[in-house]
Write a protein that binds this DNA or RNA. Structure first.
Lengths: 227, 227
DNA sequence: CGTTTTCCTTACCGGAGGGTAAGATATTAG
DNA sequence: CTAATATCTTACCCTCCGGTAAGGAAAACG
């Protein structure tokens, strides 16, 4: 379980001691930066602000990162690692496509609790250089591609109704991505509550079953879903 | 430099003639600004860029708007007007809650084709002053509130399955809001195609019907839902 | 035709931001 | 203990940005 409640953020004190700990200090910079990027936006966050929050001066930051974009990209890469981890897990866990999509929704929403996860989602590549942008886009494409694969698997194994995997993946990922815009840890809804609601919505749909739909979009009555 | 204009962007030429047309010129500024805000972000768009694209100089902009934030807020208000219009229309059209939600999805996605509509959605209030922020937030709350009302109506009239209207509205609005991040007019998918796909997904859900789910999705750690 | 009003330009200001140079101080290796 | 190295600071540069001052020229008004 990640940190919850009023934990004093220890990384703010990483520079209290001058003893050498490059990795710990790098991480402290990243955690501070990603938090500021969330609150004020990347463009509106200055290197000075990041430094002040760590009680150091701006040039010290350049001891650990080449420039501002480098900091942002490292936040991004960290978050991508988290995503790749749970994607691999889901892919190897077995089960139907529907079950994998459900796992995806839960894990992806869980990711929202992580600052670095949110950073990946919120990162607007228009802020980046050409090189950074192409890197970011390739990772985002990869995530999207893997979600589509889960949907396609579900269609093939009969657990998911016929649909356009591209659009379906957009709808699912979009709904969760947008969470990152307003979700803040410690809010009224826990990630688990949100996840359960979203799974319910996406799995079963809004329409009340038993009431015949005015226009049936589905081709034919399907076969049994595997379990 | 005169761009080889195949696409007629008439508002780029609004300042070619010095004859007085304050409204037309104001609109030209807004259309230019909102396009730049989309492509580069608000913070990364300078007043100079806006002016240059209109072949005028920066101070001329201050003849029509008080400051940069004023431009952004006017874009926002314009888009809000569009939203309120279709919300009113849906509210008075009658029909079940499910039908209203479906209309909302279609209209809201249609809005994405409008630059001003996208501006409303993408506007990050952290870029604004306290006054602007509170205005923006109040409008956004209003939109969210009205969507929830449609959902609740559907639950009450039996067209929508039991659910948490708050979470359901978040899922629907989120999926569409996220469209504004990647949708560009003239892309592979038309707004109508996207809308149909989303309606299908949200109305019927992913799960293949014909056989009831073995275990009805229960909120794992969820709170008891109202009603 | 002359006056007033609107519109837009050139020139400029104060400030902040990303980033660098050069040096001071502490830590560590030898 | 000494020298080397890592770490961090003070001082600074250049650019760009939002915004303003002041005035010139075109349009509208009478």
């Amino acid at each position: 379980m990640p940190k919850s409640g009023k934990v004093p953020e220890p990384y703010q004190k990483a520079f209290a001691d001058r003893r050498r700990d490059p990795d710990g200090k790098r991480e402290a910079i990243l955690r501070t930066a990603v938090e500021l990027f969330h609150n004020r936006g990347y463009a509106n966050t200055s290197m000075n602000e990041i430094a002040e929050k760590l009680h150091i001066t701006k040039p010290a930051l350049y001891h650990y990162f080449r420039n501002k974009e480098d900091i942002l990209l490292e936040c991004y890469r960290w978050g991508c690692m988290l995503i790749r981890e749970f994607l691999d897990e889901i892919a190897t866990q077995g089960g139907t496509g529907m079950e994998k999509v459900e796992s995806f929704i839960r894990s992806y929403i869980q990711l929202i609790s992580s600052d670095f996860g949110r950073a990946v989602i919120r990162l607007d590549d228009s802020e980046l250089s050409a090189a950074g942008r192409s890197e970011v886009r390739s990772y985002k494409r990869e995530i999207d591609r893997r979600l589509r694969v889960f949907v396609r698997e579900g269609i093939d194994d009969g657990s998911i109704a016929e649909c356009d995997p591209k659009l379906t993946a957009f709808a699912i990922a979009g709904a969760i991505n947008w969470l990152s815009m307003w979700y803040r840890p410690g809010g009224a809804l826990s990630p688990e509550e949100i996840a359960s609601g979203f799974v319910q919505t996406f799995a079963n749909g809004l329409r009340k079953t038993g009431v015949p739909a005015a226009v049936q979009v589905m081709p034919a009555a399907g076969r049994v879903q595997r379990r």
